[in-house]
């Protein structure tokens, strides 16, 4: 697959603050790629460099084979779409006017009626921007970024606070966008959203890329990629559990016990409980999440996983 977006040792500083340091990654054409990390991690600076809005201090950026700072605005933005954070629209503009206006910027555009339909805005055509809900506004912004059927689209924090249903719909819609041949760069600080939506993610912290892989592979690399919770009426002796090779950590909080460990954790826990003749309440197992990966990699989390187990060292900043 050809490369849609690449950063080569990108560095960007604002005064004495280093916003992005030595960022290297390649996004393949047709991927839904997540750039994730907490606020202030440098995600937005990185995409602003990719969009030619900022001049990197060092390193290179290529977008669809173009250097964003050396390509004409017209040529660049005919192939690239973007929804930036903090980018709005006039309050009194209607949805239809907004779509028609943005369509007029390009020589060719998608069929606008089905586009509005797909993103659930056809009933809001005549509504003004200030009458839309937060979610409707976000969807309109995405439509405006997609109206010219770009080869690559950057969506920066599109779904701030999406409910699960809206998130599922967004995932299906982004799949459609991907199937139409558009590479999607999704920038978000919601790890669960990235886990649900993205083929691969780059995790950023304090300007650096701390992990780069599929969400599943990143989670697998954790020593404790599963956790089991249960409550016990009688006291549990955690000692045999702690020495079991499948178990990484056990925490006891009154009667609530959490066990962190690898693959066959649930059966291990059940075996120990049976041996001790304990009937657990509310027993359930969970897979670790990208959030856990992030906490492990940045040393901010509990000692249930070792950063050394992943290939990339924890944040050294």
């Amino acid at each position: 697959m050809p490369t849609a977006l690449s950063f080569q040792s990108l560095r960007k500083t604002y005064g004495s603050t280093v916003a992005v340091e030595d960022l290297c990654l390649e996004v393949e054409e047709g991927e839904i790629f997540g750039l994730i990390g907490p606020n202030g991690a440098g995600k937005t600076t990185a995409v602003e460099c990719a969009l030619g809005l900022r001049q990197p201090d060092a390193g290179g950026v290529r977008v669809l084979g173009m250097d964003p700072r050396r390509t004409s605005r017209e040529a660049f933005y005919r192939r690239v779409g973007a929804q930036l954070q903090d980018a709005g629209l006039p309050d009194r503009l209607t949805v239809q006017e907004a779509v028609d206006l943005f369509a007029s910027f390009y020589p060719t555009t998608m069929d606008r009626t089905p586009l509005l339909d797909r993103w659930g805005l056809s009933e809001k055509r005549g509504a003004s921007i200030d009458a839309l809900s937060g979610g409707q506004k976000q969807r309109l912004f995405v439509v405006l970024a997609l109206v010219h059927n770009p080869d690559l689209v950057v969506l920066d924090e599109i779904s701030t606070g999406l409910d699960p249903e809206a998130r599922r719909v967004t995932r299906d819609l982004l799949r459609e966008v991907q199937e139409s041949g558009t590479t999607v760069i999704l920038v978000t600080h919601f790890m669960d959203e990235a886990q649900a939506l993205c083929d691969r993610v780059a995790m950023m912290n304090r300007g650096r890329c701390v992990a780069l892989d599929t969400p599943a592979a990143l989670i697998d690399r954790l020593d404790a990629s599963y956790r089991v919770h249960f409550a016990a009426a009688s006291s549990v002796n955690p000692a045999p559990l702690r020495v079991d090779p499948a178990v990484e950590t056990v925490t006891v909080d009154d009667k609530h016990i959490r066990v962190y460990g690898s693959d066959n954790l649930l059966s291990t826990v059940v075996r120990h409980l049976t041996e001790q003749n304990i009937t657990p309440n509310d027993l359930h197992a969970e897979r670790a999440t990208l959030e856990d990966v992030f906490l492990a990699l940045t040393n901010d989390g509990p000692a249930r996983s070792s950063p050394a187990a992943t290939e990339i060292p924890a944040d050294s900043a």
Binding site: Y77, L84, A87, G88, L89, F105
Partner: peptide
């Protein structure tokens, strides 16, 4: 100033609009 405040100019900035 309103167009700048509301990020409307910022949105135009990532289109071919000159």
């Amino acid at each position: 100033a309103t167009q700048r405040d509301h990020g409307i100019l910022r949105r135009f900035r990532v289109t071919p609009l000159r």
